[in-house]
């Protein structure tokens, strides 16, 4: 699509936020978002992700000393209505006193766009979001998914320089979330717009983000591409917040990590490692007769069709989670031999 405003690059310099009651919502943050990129702020409730988004939007001002730049221009003290950003709220924030078409056209009406042009743009937006037949409905006559589509159409209609989405799918049920996630993804790609997406759902973050900013307690824990975040988590928090992480405790001796369940051969093992982490897909159940240094017993097995999710007791506090594609029937108490791909091993 060629009719959006030129995407903007956004940077935050030393942006902290302390609320009036003294709560520190955000520690000083520096962040550069490239033009046209989709960045996802991911983290648990209260990690500062929404506050950061609101600072970028212009709904909050950072503490003194913080700066927000759009394409290098200081917009720190510019209120949201002068920043030309599109925003999608978790609660949609649709105007109950206007129809769907009225909502979508509101931003254009404020910009004093001629009425004919507004009409054309509104029907274009409604068609794009596949809600043309809802044009004359009142907001209270719409389902959650329909409301979210209207909110997206309304935010994009004004050709914003950046699109900011605050947990847009959280209020929807799981199935609808999947469909809309896909739609938002193709929408963001086709618009080529700079987009910032806040969520606490790691699957959403992985699917949508060019880069993910993982946040914890008002600080950035890690910034990176989804694959980096998943495969090379920088901290234990990141490792455990995203996906499932298995853990073995023990010590390193002669290139082997030794734990209660046996040994894991790992040539590059750091000598001081007392704990190794790895993903469920990096461990497998060996065929009988294959040599292995590691063994455990099946604590639980869930057949999922394409694979079996196994919980294997190896004498640690937590059983290991294994996604097995083996064509065999596991049952509680079965002894199994295990093999770990050393490329998936992490020490944090």
């Amino acid at each position: 699509m060629t009719d959006t405003a030129k995407p903007v690059s956004i940077s935050l310099a030393n942006c902290a936020k302390t609320f009036a009651d003294g709560t520190r919502a955000l520690e000083p943050l520096d962040l550069a978002i490239h033009a046209g990129e989709t960045v996802v702020f991911l983290g648990p409730s209260g990690c500062g992700k929404t506050t950061t988004l609101r600072i970028i939007a212009g709904l909050e001002e950072p503490d003194a000393g913080g700066k927000v730049l759009f394409d290098g221009v200081d917009v720190t003290h510019l209120p949201i209505e002068q920043r030309n950003v599109g925003m999608v709220f978790q609660s949609y924030a649709l105007f109950p006193n206007m129809t769907v078409a009225g909502n979508v056209g509101y931003g254009l009406r404020i910009r004093k766009v001629p009425e004919a042009e507004i009409k054309a743009r509104v029907s274009e937006m409604l068609a794009m979001m596949q809600i043309t037949r809802l044009a004359d409905r009142r907001i209270d006559q719409l389902s959650g998914g329909q409301r979210q589509r209207v909110a997206l159409a309304r935010a994009i209609a004004v050709r914003p320089r950046a699109l900011l989405l605050d947990e847009p799918l959280t209020a929807l049920d799981a199935k609808l979330r999947d469909t809309l996630r896909l739609e938002i993804d193709s929408l963001l790609r086709s618009l080529g717009i700079t987009a910032i997406y806040v969520t606490h759902d790691q699957a959403e973050a992985m699917a949508l983000g060019d880069r993910i900013v993982v946040m914890e307690h008002g600080r950035v824990a890690q910034i990176g591409k989804p694959r980096e975040i998943y495969q090379r988590p920088a901290t234990r928090f990141v490792a455990e917040f995203i996906g499932t992480m298995n853990r073995l405790t023990g010590s390193v001796r002669n290139g082997t990590f030794t734990c209660r369940a046996g040994g894991v051969a790992w040539a590059q093992a750091p000598a001081a490692a007392t704990e190794i982490l790895f993903r469920p897909e990096d461990i497998r159940v060996v065929e009988s007769g294959e040599a292995t240094g590691l063994s455990g017993t099946v604590a639980a097995a869930f057949f999922l069709g394409d694979r079996t999710r196994l919980f294997v007791d190896v004498g640690e506090a937590q059983p290991l989670v294994i996604e097995s594609t083996a064509r065999r029937d596991f049952s509680h108490g079965d002894p199994v031999g295990l093999a770990i791909d050393p490329r998936g091993l992490l020490v944090l």
Partner: peptide, 23 residues
């Protein structure tokens, strides 16, 4: 949810008076 409604209107470019009048 007055606050969010007003923020929604502000994000679309509406200043205080248009917000008060329209929302």
């Amino acid at each position: 949810d007055l606050r969010t409604l007003e923020e929604g209107a502000a994000s679309l470019g509406a200043g205080f008076w248009p917000r008060f009048r329209d929302i």
